[in-house]
Design a protein around this nucleic acid. Sequence first.
RNA 1: GGCGACGUGGCCGAAUGGUUAGGCAUGGGCCUGCAAAGCCCCGUAACCGGGUUCGAUUCCCGGCGUCGCCUCCA
Length: 375
Amino acid sequence: MMRLYDTAKQSVVPFEPGPTVLMYTCGITPYDATHLGHAFTFISYDILIRRLIDMGHQVKCVRNVTDVDDPLFAKARELGVHYLDLAAGEEARFTADMEALEVLPMYSTPRASSAISDIRGFIGLVIDKGFAYQSGGSVYFDVTKSPTFGEISHYSNETMIALARERGGNIEDPHKRHPLDFVLWHPSAADEPSWDTMWGAGRPGWHIECSALALRELGTTIDLHGGGSDLIFPHHECERAQSEAATGEVFVKHWMHVAMVSMDGHKMSKSRGNLVFVDKLRTQFDPRVIRLGLIEHHYRFEWEWDAQMFARNVDRLANWGTGTKNDDGQLLNQVRDALDDDLDTPRAIAHIDKAAKTGVNVTDAARLLGIELKR
RNA sequence: GGCGACGUGGCCGAAUGGUUAGGCAUGGGCCUGCAAAGCCCCGUAACCGGGUUCGAUUCCCGGCGUCGCCUCCA
């Protein structure tokens, strides 16, 4: 039986989905190259998916592409290109990075720009159910109607307001009834794309595409929702509130978040610029070395990027390729046990290291971690 | 620069319009051959200036200073 940490429940709990696992992970906003933090997140989910498939499940995982959003518009403006041209280029780079790192293909990778009509319908549903109001040309979600708001992050109202303030949540917006109310739809700036709706022209709010896409692609209730831990608040909190408002059903059974990768003592982030890009690394190292360097860390704990990892994992990969003795499935089961214990990849790797040292052929065990030894 | 949080005895850290937690360290004592540990004892502090008040650390205004955030991004 697999056990995984659930952010909302704040503990490691059994994860026992049906034969078909419905999964959604928040993807990227394609305005810049993929960095190691992105890679770590998506590789973590990839390991989970590989193990679920290994257990006999069919996995339907959706990973969206946010090609309608502020940072994309800003970058397109700066470069003087159309935002969708920028998005298409960066999405292609991202896809190439994921393929190189042997992240399994998704069931679906829908774009926000493909979902405008779904979003329109979704917002209509939220308004009809009485969870949203129109004010000043925007549509806001009314958090006072959602008593469970905050139950993923476990933040108090005061903490959420403080964080919203720091994270550009515009809590002073005079059109809002409550400082934590968030935008479902809002007017576009002059040079931004705009779509007509019954409540005015504009564009979607930040959180709404994921709700609309999850509903369109997977239905009202999904088994597991993932993303980086930086998305817990406000993104996932808002996403859940509006989804449950629209459908009246439980949105997500299990919330899973991947820890941040840091560098120079700070979270690797676009705003700070302390990034290590995957496409650059790929020109210097075997992508399997990059993958190993990521999964030698546990998904739930933040870690510091360290260039030492290359030498270590070049050696590791070489050692893994030397064994010839049949291991009778013993090693494979040890790796399975480690993964079933809250995706303990460091322990899985330690098992493989040990077996490889004794001359065991570790091909199958490595494959479960997405490392293909025979090329 | 903007937004926000905060400036309490050597340090950390609460509460509070008056009688002024607590913890740690220091110092003194008990104990011990010595030391350590343990135990006991000891502290009137509120960044500056002004205002409200019978009375302010607490409320209000101004200044100074510290911290966080300012493309929440995976």
